[in-house]
Design a protein around this nucleic acid. Structure first.
Lengths: 232, 232
DNA sequence: GCACGATTGAAGCGATTGATTGATTCATCT
DNA sequence: AGATGAATCAATCAATCGCTTCAATCGTGC
């Protein structure tokens, strides 16, 4: 045994550190939480972080990977199912969008009391580490986006691929912002946003994104004649 | 004169600090940039920050206020214009949305070479400081949201106020995410997103949000019977 | 030319950071 | 019982943080 007690520990130090770290990172961001904050919360020694993870960044990466992997896997699975189901035709855009958004909802249900933590942590990944994500996460994101773009291009043949890419991007923006800032909305609207549960919120999010994906594309009123003249 | 040179200085230390700080904060976030990073970039002394602003947080607040004020002012002005224009009827939702989004575009044009910095800095305000914004900024946001909700409720009388509040929230999510992560999109799509200028991007953003605002609202398939049972 | 107030600079404050050390504890195995 | 190796601890490292101090510097008005 490489553990002090012969039991399969749910109270292991490593797990306690990861749970504490996830909560604190979700609440205050990656940079604002020190190793001492984490180990104090986890009732562990500062050295334990280095012992189990090497560095703070490695701990963060492991948390991000652990959080993203089941999400990506579930999305891919749903896309598989959709393609199988619509084998003779084209997978509708709404079904594709659902496959991307729904797993966040499903995974949420499995989180129990930690669902709020999970939400904010995933939001942190998107907003604070949107660039510079761990390599496997980045690669998984690329695979998803690539597949997504291909399927949506079939579903919406009249839409320019470039416009489509941006609209997918917007959908992820809605997702990240919603995961992070629910309490901001509550404060700024002074209650007009109600107090919906996460499932209701995510359903509203999906509705909104569906409308956005299928939106008409207006002529560019402002810079139709100056495309590409700035910065790029 | 309270300045050493009688000139109106574009090279004043205070301005150099603010410019350098805005750029660095935009690029690396508020927490990751030290006063020494700022003063080195600005060719100034560390004490100058304390001399002109008091603390690092005060500097950040001043930058946020300075960045947000003209934006809010322009939005309110456009809403005024719209209400005047549609005095006999109701201001359409699209016009309202335009009034909120368009000033970001207009202000961008005034930023010249610093437009990219301005974009990212505003994005940082939304994503890293979404809560805990300076009091005047928070109040301005509340005024805007309140007015927005009222006008949109008139424009979309069939939509539940709560759903409307969330859809407005989603719009700001799209805005913030777009301002922050354009290069992420470019990397993850490997070029499929093209290299549009900011004006084109913002126009696409507005189109998307219009579609989202006007989207149909599907029945809640998942938790229609469990509203309010979790966390809230 | 001299004093004054505004501004700048070098140096350092105490506190905190991520990371490391070497000793120690303890279950396990021979 | 003794040896082994995983796990934990207190203590400390150098580096960096925001912030302060105090003297030097500068233009300006007297």
């Amino acid at each position: 045994m490489n553990k002090r007690s012969g039991e399969v520990g749910k109270d292991e130090t490593k797990d306690r550190i990861m749970l504490a770290a996830e909560s604190l990172f979700a609440e205050r961001g990656f940079m604002s939480v020190s190793l001492r904050d984490i180990t104090t919360e986890a009732s562990a020694n500062v050295a334990a972080v280095n012992y189990y993870f090497g560095t703070k960044d490695a701990l963060i990466d492991e948390l991000i990977i652990q959080g993203n992997h089941p999400l990506m896997k579930a999305r891919m699975q749903l896309l598989d199912d959709a393609e199988k189901r619509y084998q003779i035709g084209v997978v509708p855009a709404e079904v594709i969008l659902d496959a991307v958004m729904r797993p966040m909802l499903t995974l949420l249900e499995q989180q129990g009391e930690r669902r709020e933590v999970y939400c904010k942590f995933m939001g942190r990944c998107m907003t604070e580490r949107g660039n510079n994500l761990p390599v496997p996460v980045m690669r998984a994101a690329q695979r998803l986006i690539k597949r997504l773009s291909r399927m949506l291009a079939d579903a919406l043949p009249d839409m320019e691929p470039e416009v489509l890419a941006w609209r997918v991007h917007f959908c992820f923006g809605v997702l990240g912002h919603t995961l992070m800032h629910d309490e901001l909305l509550r404060e700024v609207t002074k209650g007009a946003s109600g107090t919906p549960d996460f499932e209701t919120t995510l359903q509203r999010m999906i509705d909104f994104c569906k409308g956005g994906l299928n939106a008409g594309s207006s002529a560019n009123l402002v810079s139709s004649g100056s495309q590409g003249t700035f910065l790029f």
